[in-house]
Design a protein around this nucleic acid. Sequence first.
RNA 1: GUGGGCGUAGCUCAGUAGGUAGAGCGCCAGAUUGUGGCUCUGGUGGCCGCGGGUUCAAGUCCCGUCGCUCACCCCA
Length: 423
Amino acid sequence: MKQIKRIKGTQDILPPISQKWQYIEKTLRKVMRCYGYNEIRTPMFEMTELFARGIGQLTDIVSKEMYTFQDRSKKSLTLRPECTAPVIRAYLENNLGEARPVQKLYYISAMFRQENPQAGRLRQFHQFGVECIGPQAPEADTETILLGLDIYQELGLKNFSVKINSVGDVESRVAYKSQLKKFLKPQLNDLCQTCRERYESNPMRILDCKNESCNEILASAPRILDALSENARSHFEKVLSLLDQNGVEYEIDHRLVRGLDYYTFTAYEFIGGGLGAQNALGGGGRYDLLAQEIGSKKPVPSVGFAAGIERLIMAMDKENLFPEMRKNVDVFIATFGGKSQEAGFKLAHELRKNDISVLTELMGRSLKAQMREANRSGARFALILGEDELRNGRAALKDLQKSEQQEVVLGKLATEILKSRQM
RNA sequence: GUGGGCGUAGCUCAGUAGGUAGAGCGCCAGAUUGUGGCUCUGGUGGCCGCGGGUUCAAGUCCCGUCGCUCACCCCA
């Protein structure tokens, strides 16, 4: 019979690698708490319309990357390709804005996009992200950037940078788009195929193009920062000045527009080193228009970012940032002869109730094999329990690190093991 | 969707001009009849991705196919 294999672009996260995930998640939660964020968990799938309207029909995500299917009642559902739209949907649906004017929410969850996998790109991947919902103030924008940086710093990441831009408000964008189109019009035929299509559908995305000849043309293109409205300009300046005041180094990238339609004002990216072709660790910005796109009657200003965990792990591996993974087994109970196996089994049960990590032999192997297993498991101690020991209520407790062995009264085993932990 | 690279033991890989498959690590056992790590000895383990073709003979050559991987596009 044919072996069933995992789906393309998915991963089995096996031990001990899963410990890296736990380490990162623990750090994330710690920093999130410092910034006053609370965790939100939304469903893994949503009505397709949420993403189609929220992210934008013309984006790559919606037009060609979504896992969309019909359920039995013919509703079109989609595995979430990102989590900002679901969070805002949950915010609106549960009237969180009525509860308090500022909601700071974070998530750590799986996302799905049907793309061809490569280094740093999977079909099921994981993001952590924050959404600061309610405030319009530039302080909120800067705070999310500081939060992201704190996470990377807390994890020890050295090789990364911040790029930032402003894509302005609606008014600025209308003005800029026409400037850009006017600039490009005479050179339209020199642009690549996709850029020519975008000229009508979404001219700002042309800035994103990496094609060499497009690059040359775009080098002298008008800059959006010069087209910002008064409001958008002062917002951006405040964001930058707060970054400066807090010692953040950043690079203004005039061509950073980001692929999702919902961004307004600030847009930024965390760029990592050594990640291969996919070097964005995370990206975010302000998205004041999203809530209304998905049905809110009033505007709900929000800012946030999403960042990839797989890419973070790659970057951290590159810099060797994961601490030594401890094997947390306290004792391996090796038994042989008579009733020792059952006695050892029962002893393990008692020790475990004292918060002690215990392994017992489950393969019926020889003492020698059990000792080897004890060593391999990383256990601090091996308890050697034979018939003789059982008779007089004592057993040999061998410290596998020091290679020392002592006799212990079985009743005092728990205290003995717990004592050794403090040393 | 497109292009490059690669599919041989649990893992990493070697396999010379086509001649009946190997190493290191791991795993198991013994040396040590009740004691791990080091060492030594032995052992287990392969539809050589799958299907077809050429040939006396195919892991090796040809065709097809599937999978993995990297890259383009774009993104996390």
